[in-house]
Amino acid sequence: MKMEKRILWLSLWTGGLFAVAEFFMAIYSGSQAVLMDAAYDASELLILGLMLFLMPLFHRPITEKLPFGFSQLESILVIIKGFMLLSVTFGLSAKSVEVALTGGNEVDGVQISIFQAVVALVSLGILLAMRRMNRTLSSPILDMEIYGWKVDVAYSLGMGAAFFGSTFFKGTPLEGISPYFDQIVSVLIVLFMMPEALKMLVRAIKDVFLFSPEKETMDRIKEICGNVLERRGLEPVFYDVTRTGRRLWVSVYFRKDAEFLVVRALQDAMREANEALAEEFDHCVCELIMAGPDEGHLQPQD
């Protein structure tokens, strides 16, 4: 938890400095694209501060009263952050379209490109530091933060290159779009950010409603557990997998043709399955359950 909080504090302080710098630059340059970046960073800070405040809850052990702990709270915060970013993004996009429809506005392309180049270099350094600190951790919140910094680096590089290129429009057939270039870039930012942001949002919503994870995760779990059970002479017939926040619960229903089942062998199989899953998934618990003859709702695996 200490390392996780250190990473989030690093993101909070540096993100705050970037947001302030971008707001001043947006006011000075009159750029809608820079204003969108500043609003995006500022909205992230609100949720990030709340996440830091609630961090101790995410690491509390599960109990009989709270079988999922506070893991669902983590997913709910990711959902709130996702909807907040979407609302800010679409709101500023509408403003950019409105400015474009009223004639657009001219901005200093060289000035903005230099500013974005500096932002990109600093963001890249922070991203590399966060990824190095996050090597041994598994946290949806950290994954979303690191994704946000990836977006910042790519966005700043692309935006700087685009505005630098716009300075060569004069005297070319593209000169007519110069007043609208700032708005075009801001709308392209939305198209660039939306797919991954929506993917994280959908995942968090599925986690809150305790849906099974994505197909790639399910296939990997089936492969790991299936290999363990096969070596023990057990036949897996149904996988009940629940993920919420950073926790993963795996229940594997199995059948055995033999008349007897040695309890010690079942315990060894369960221990081996948990050890194998722990190598790829943090906070993962696996249990093996023998399927009864009357449990017709259990369908054989694909």
Rank of each mutant, 00 (worst) to 15 (best):
L54M: 11
L57C: 04
F58C: 09
H59P: 00
R60S: 07
R60D: 05
I62Y: 03
T63E: 08
T63K: 07
E64I: 03
E64G: 02
K65E: 12
L66A: 05
P67M: 02
P67V: 03
F68S: 00
F68D: 10
G69P: 01
F70Q: 08
S71L: 02
L73N: 07
E74W: 02
I76V: 13
L77E: 04
I80N: 00
I80W: 00
K81D: 03
F83M: 06
L85P: 02
V88T: 09
F90L: 14
S93M: 15
S93R: 13
S96F: 02
V97C: 00
E98R: 04
V99G: 01
V99F: 01
L101T: 11
L101D: 01
L101Y: 04
T102C: 01
G104T: 07
N105T: 06
E106L: 15
V107L: 07
D108F: 13
V110Q: 11
Q111K: 14
Q111V: 13
I112T: 08
I112P: 11
I114C: 08
I114H: 14
F115T: 10
Q116M: 15
V118G: 09
L121D: 03
V122T: 14
S123D: 15
L124K: 07
L124C: 12
L124M: 14
I126D: 06
L128C: 13
L128P: 08
L128S: 10
R131T: 10
R135V: 10
T136W: 09
T136F: 09
T136H: 13
L137W: 14
S138F: 13
I141C: 06
L142D: 07
L142S: 03
M144D: 10
M144V: 13
Y147K: 11
G148E: 08
G148F: 05
W149Q: 07
W149E: 04
